[in-house]
Simulated scan of single mutants.
Amino acid sequence: MPSPAVDDYLKTIYHHTEWQDDRITPSQLAAEPGLAPSSVTEMVQKLAAQGLVTHRPYGPISLSPEGTRRAASIIRRHRLVETWLVRDFGYTWDEVHDEAEVLEHALSDRLLEGIDERLGRPRFDPHGDAIPDAAGTVHREPFVLLADAVPGHSGRVLRVSDRDPHLLRAVEAAGVAVGAEVAVTDAATLRIDGADVALPDAAAGAIWLSA
Rank of each mutant, 00 (worst) to 15 (best):
S62D: 06
G175R: 15
L52V: 01
R76D: 00
S39D: 12
R69Q: 10
L168F: 09
L209P: 02
A183R: 15
P33D: 03
P2S: 15
A71G: 09
A147I: 07
V157T: 05
E113K: 12
L111C: 03
L167S: 05
H97R: 11
A5R: 14
G136W: 12
E42I: 04
S38C: 02
Y14H: 15
D8C: 03
R76H: 03
A5K: 13
H127C: 04
W93A: 02
D201L: 09
L85I: 01
L63Q: 04
Y91E: 05
L63Y: 03
V96Y: 10
R69P: 00
D88N: 12
H166W: 01
A195K: 15
P4E: 05
P122H: 08
E95F: 02
A31N: 10
I61M: 04
A170V: 02
E172M: 07
A147D: 14
S154E: 14
V197Q: 13
A204F: 04
H16L: 00
L29A: 05
L29H: 07
M1F: 11
R169V: 03
T54Y: 00
P122Q: 10
A5V: 06
E32P: 00
T189P: 00
A198S: 12
S38E: 09
P122L: 06
A204T: 03
D22Q: 10
G179Q: 12
V150N: 12
W208A: 03
G90Y: 08
L47M: 02
L199N: 07
A72K: 07
R140G: 01
P37E: 11
T68H: 01
E113G: 09
V197W: 06
G34N: 05
K46A: 03
L107Y: 06
R191T: 12
A149C: 13
K11R: 15
W208Y: 14
V184C: 13
D116M: 04
T17Q: 01
D94W: 14
F143E: 09
R123A: 15
A100F: 01
D133W: 09
W208S: 03
D193V: 12
S64A: 11
E141C: 06
P122F: 04
I75C: 10
A183D: 12
V157Q: 05
H55F: 10
G34D: 05
T12P: 00
F89Y: 14
K46E: 05
D186F: 05
S38N: 07
V96I: 07
P122Y: 04
H97L: 08
V160G: 02
H16F: 13
D22T: 11
E181Y: 09
R77P: 00
P33C: 07
S154D: 11
A183K: 14
